[in-house]
């Protein structure tokens, strides 16, 4: 659960700075968020059909997080 907490908080709530420390534009933040999530094995990004398919095949419930990039 601790790992989940760290991953969730870091991936979903933070990441407003670029690698140089400069604030990112909103578009840059959304794209960076997408890139992060697409590399993350634990998350499906914006693809409900894929999530439903996987949930059906694995017999797992879906946890669907709606998070606005501020």
């Amino acid at each position: 659960m601790k790992a989940f907490a760290i991953a969730t908080v870091s991936v979903l709530l933070l990441s407003g700075l670029s690698a140089t420390g400069a604030p990112k534009s909103r578009d840059q933040q959304v794209i960076a968020d997408r890139d992060d999530l697409e590399k993350n094995q634990d998350w499906i990004y914006n693809d409900l059909k894929l999530a439903e398919l996987e949930a059906g095949e694995k017999g797992k419930p879906m946890m669907i997080v709606f998070r606005c990039i501020p």
Partner: peptide
Amino acid sequence: MDQFVCLRMIQM
């Protein structure tokens, strides 16, 4: 967390 299929949505 691995007991769920986790889906991230950002828009409506």
